[in-house]
């Protein structure tokens, strides 16, 4: 029997086959990894509470210029004593020139002082204006926010009332115009915390009981998901007029 020629090349063939598969896997690994693009990272800040709108000034107040060096107050030299008659003409002339010079210097300094004062005043005025603007901005933002919150609060109080109303058995409250007031406490999930407390009864024990049952049945009550709006719902004072 003849030995098949292929046997001589078993190891070579095995090595080559391994090489081919290594290449194939390299292609798969790098080819696929290369296609899987890393999405750009997203940075998320988690806030437990909405930040109060900071009324930061859009423009920083201009740094006040460093105060100019205080002009050295020179004691104005006393006018020279009347020249003695003896003094020669030339000396007298010199003195006069000096005096003139001194006067001019004084005038200059005064002008400088006035200018500085003016600058200071304008700076102060500017600052005041900016502060005013900031305050305005803050007030407006607050007003806006509170308005938005107010609308949310109104919305949800309406929903709570209507939910309870829908569960209420009005037949137990008679024909009159009974008024009841309840205090309830809520958890952030809308569930009741403790039992509702009757603040002002209608005079009809059955009616009081019916309203209380309605409140208990409508647990959980709708509450706003925003934590700052929910703060209005932690303690609620509810007024009921079952027959209206």
């Amino acid at each position: 029997m003849i030995a098949p020629a292929a046997d001589h090349y078993r190891f070579q063939s095995g090595a080559l086959a391994l090489l081919v598969h290594a290449a194939f896997f390299a292609l798969l690994i790098f080819g696929i990894t290369w296609q899987a693009k890393e999405p750009a990272g997203v940075v998320v800040d988690l806030w437990s509470n909405l930040p109060t709108p900071e009324a930061k000034p859009a423009i920083k107040p201009v740094e006040p210029p460093p105060p100019a060096p205080e002009p050295i107050k020179k004691v104005a030299p006393k006018p020279a004593p009347p020249a003695p008659v003896k003094t020669p003409d030339i000396a007298l002339k010199e003195k006069r020139v000096q005096e003139e010079k001194r006067k001019q210097e004084q005038m200059k300094q005064e002008q400088l002082k006035k200018e500085q004062l003016k600058q200071e005043q304008t700076r102060l005025a500017e600052q005041a204006r900016q502060q005013q603007a900031q305050a305005d901005l803050a007030r407006r933002a607050q007003a806006q926010q509170s308005a938005a919150q107010q609308s949310i609060v109104n919305d949800y109080t309406g929903r709570i009332q209507s939910k309870i109303q829908s569960k209420l058995n009005k037949a137990l409250c008679g024909d009159g115009k009974p008024q009841l007031e309840f205090d309830i406490a809520l958890l952030p999930t809308g569930q009741l915390r403790g039992n509702p407390i009757l603040r002002k009864g209608s005079g009809l024990a059955a009616c009081d009981k019916a309203v209380e049952n309605a409140i208990l049945q409508s647990d959980p009550l709708p509450v706003p998901p925003q934590p700052e709006a929910f703060s209005f719902f932690r303690e609620l004072h509810l007024k009921f007029r079952p027959n209206e």
């Binding site: 292929a6 090349y9 078993r10 070579q12 063939s13 095995g14 086959a17 391994l18 081919v20 598969h21």
Partner: peptide, 15 residues
Amino acid sequence: ASFMSWLFIFQKMFA
């Protein structure tokens, strides 16, 4: 299967 077939491919090629 792939490995075996490549092995035989090379063996046959040489043979």
